[in-house]
Every structure is written in structure tokens, then in C-alpha cells.
Amino acid sequence: MSAFLQKIGKPGRTALLAAPGVLFFFIFFVVPLASLFLLSLDKPTLGNASIQWLFDFRNFERFFSRSIYYEAAIRSAGLAALVSVIALILGYPLAYLIAKTTDVRRNTTLMILVLSAMQLDMVIRLFGLMVLMGDVGLINEFLRWLGLVGDEPLPLMYNFAGVVVGLVQFSLPFMILSLVGVIQGINPALEEAARSLGARRWQTFWKITIPLSMPGILAGLLLVFAISFSSYVVPTLMGGWKVVVLPIHIFQQVAELGKWQFGAAIAAIMFAISFLVMLIYQRAAIQASGGRI
């Protein structure tokens, strides 16, 4: 085997090692995605999921001609952007603490707390939130016991705020993990040099630490945005079908109405929006970091 690898040379070894991953990516991502795009261009046919090679743009015309669909796209993008910002605000201090903690036991404990949130299935975690935030949940019952609310409970669920809380709770560990490694990679000598030149702690943080951790911020924002933008379970359970986002429309069109072509068109538009937002994020981050990304 080693003689064979030496014979094919370094470029051949690289191609050989990359071949399984590339093949898997092509079969299970590129092919389904291309099929989805082709299906979205077919003539709307109820209950038919096969590609007919009929290039018809009526599915996209329907999406942009009805406000219920393009408003859902705006709502989905706005929700994902808001969740990304909140996750960054909540996750950066904890990631900074983990990265700067030198005590091995304390650092391990903090990492276990972050990773433990990812061990349970998302549905189980959301059911736990429902027990906490429901109309007769722990929060409302505690507030009733204190006499702060009456018979009308606080609307903590089945609204936009409930969906935001659910998405932040689910995506926060991904933001923290994206930031920890980057912050740990920042050379402490740079911060010490800034302090020795008279910079205050907050000046060092904003002028040195934040710019150098921009790659982790970018990665976390992109990851949280993608998770939130494509989430179906969280808006369904925490929003109670009242916060209608694009994944809910896709499910309704395909699973309930059998309109595969229109559901594929919504999915194609959703993919295009996500890809466009990622390009905008990357360009803005490159400019903010001085071209280091």
C-alpha cells in the first residue's frame, strides 16, 4: 500500500484521500440539490415528485406574487439575524472566560456545561422549555405565587419571543465552540503590549481582542444563522404555528398539500437567500478584520 502511494505521487495521494469525502458530498448534497432545483422548474402537478424537465417559472411567480410567502422569507431572515446577534452577545463572554481560564479543572467543567446542552435531542430540550415557559409552566406559576400576575399568564410561548428563546437556547453552544478556539489562539503578548503602552482593559479588548477574534465571530454568526434560518422544529413547537417561517411553508406544501414543485421552489429561494447572506457576512467580516479572513 505504501509503495502504491509513493508511486502515484503527492498530487495523486491528495486526490485519493479527498475522493471519498468528495464522492459522498456529490452524491448526498449536489445531486439532491440539483434535483430540487430542477423540480422547482417543473409545471405544478399535484402529488408528482418526479422531474418532468418542463422549465416553468410559475412556482417562483406564485412565491413573489403572494405576500404570505415573501413576508415569511423576510421573517425567517430577520429571525435568524436576531438570534445570531443575541447568541453572539451571550456566547462571547462565556467563550472568553473558557479561553482565558488556565485552571484545567475549571476549564473542563465549563466545557462540560456547554457540551452537555448538545447531548439531549432538540425536541426533548424544547419540551423542557415548554414546561418552563408555558401558560401553566414554572415561570408563570412562580409569578402567580408571588402575586405578580393574575389569571392571565405572561405570553412567553407561541409567539415570536418564544421562538427566539428556543433558537438561542439551541444554537448558543455552536456559537461558543466557534469562538473558544479562536480566542485561545490570540497571542497574549499582543494584549500585554497594548496594556504596557497605556491602553485600558476595555480599549485592549475592543482594539485587540475583538478584531483578532473576528474569524470566530464570523464562523459563529454564519453557523447560528444557518441553523436558525432552516429550523422547522423550533418555530413549530415554540411558535405554535403562529410564527410562520419558510420551513413551515415547505412542509405544508410537500407533506400536507402534495405540491412538490412549489415546495421545491420555496426551498430553492431559501437556499439562495442563505447563500447570499453568507456572502454578505464574509465580505463584511473581511473588511472589518483588515483582510485576515
Results as ranks from 00 to 15, higher is better:
residue 120 L to N: 04
residue 77 A to D: 10
residue 19 A to P: 07
residue 111 M to V: 08
residue 239 G to A: 00
residue 58 R to N: 14
residue 155 P to N: 06
residue 135 D to S: 08
residue 246 L to V: 11
residue 56 D to K: 12
residue 65 S to G: 13
residue 33 L to N: 12
residue 80 A to R: 01
residue 125 R to H: 02
residue 33 L to Q: 09
residue 171 S to W: 00
residue 181 G to L: 08
residue 29 F to N: 12
residue 250 I to W: 04
residue 27 I to M: 12
residue 229 F to Q: 07
residue 122 M to G: 10
residue 261 Q to V: 00
residue 71 E to H: 05
residue 23 L to G: 15
residue 146 L to M: 12
residue 149 V to R: 07
residue 268 A to N: 08
residue 103 D to Y: 05
residue 185 G to Q: 03
residue 288 A to M: 15
residue 136 V to S: 11
residue 37 F to S: 08
residue 126 L to E: 11
residue 94 L to H: 13
residue 242 K to S: 07
residue 161 A to K: 11
residue 112 I to K: 10
residue 13 R to N: 06
residue 152 E to W: 03
residue 272 A to L: 14
residue 205 F to E: 04
residue 228 S to R: 07
residue 16 L to T: 14
residue 266 I to E: 15
residue 141 E to R: 12
residue 224 V to Q: 08
residue 130 M to P: 02
residue 154 L to H: 09
residue 135 D to I: 02
residue 97 L to E: 12
residue 213 S to M: 13
residue 112 I to V: 15
residue 194 A to H: 09
residue 282 Q to A: 03
residue 20 P to E: 02
residue 285 A to M: 09
residue 150 G to N: 09
residue 78 G to C: 01
residue 98 I to G: 05
residue 256 E to K: 15
residue 21 G to A: 14
residue 42 D to H: 00
residue 180 V to E: 12
residue 109 T to M: 11
residue 39 L to N: 01
residue 34 A to T: 15
residue 14 T to W: 04
residue 21 G to P: 08
residue 173 P to E: 09
residue 182 V to T: 12
residue 214 M to W: 05
residue 280 I to T: 12
residue 204 T to N: 10
residue 267 A to Q: 04
residue 151 D to K: 02
residue 98 I to P: 10
residue 131 V to S: 02
residue 128 G to E: 07
residue 88 L to I: 01
residue 22 V to E: 13
residue 116 S to D: 13
residue 223 L to D: 04
residue 78 G to M: 06
residue 155 P to F: 00
residue 36 L to A: 03
residue 142 F to M: 02
residue 170 F to M: 11
residue 156 L to H: 03
residue 90 L to Y: 04
residue 134 G to V: 09
residue 191 E to F: 13
residue 108 T to N: 12
residue 213 S to P: 13
residue 133 M to G: 01
residue 157 M to D: 00
residue 15 A to K: 04
residue 44 P to D: 09
residue 218 L to T: 06
residue 254 V to G: 11
residue 159 N to G: 02
residue 79 L to C: 09
residue 167 L to C: 01
residue 228 S to L: 07
residue 221 L to G: 05
residue 38 L to I: 01
residue 281 Y to D: 14
residue 109 T to P: 01
residue 158 Y to V: 12
residue 237 L to I: 13
residue 146 L to D: 04
residue 62 R to D: 10
residue 36 L to T: 09
residue 18 A to V: 00
residue 185 G to E: 01
residue 195 R to Y: 15
residue 200 R to V: 01
residue 225 F to I: 02
residue 84 S to E: 06
residue 215 P to C: 12
residue 187 N to C: 12
residue 165 V to L: 07
residue 29 F to R: 10
residue 176 I to P: 05
residue 192 E to I: 03
residue 199 A to Y: 08
residue 139 I to R: 00
residue 271 F to Y: 10
residue 20 P to F: 00
residue 288 A to F: 05
residue 194 A to M: 14
residue 164 V to Y: 00
residue 86 I to N: 08
residue 58 R to Q: 12
residue 150 G to P: 01
residue 44 P to E: 11
residue 92 Y to W: 08
residue 159 N to M: 04
residue 181 G to I: 05
residue 251 F to H: 11
residue 87 A to H: 01
residue 271 F to C: 14
residue 201 R to N: 07
residue 53 W to P: 09
residue 112 I to F: 13
residue 18 A to G: 01
residue 135 D to E: 03
residue 176 I to T: 07
residue 210 I to S: 11
residue 143 L to A: 11
residue 68 I to C: 05
residue 205 F to T: 01
residue 283 R to Q: 11
residue 70 Y to I: 15
residue 235 P to D: 04
residue 124 I to L: 14
residue 240 G to M: 05
residue 148 L to P: 01
residue 74 I to R: 00
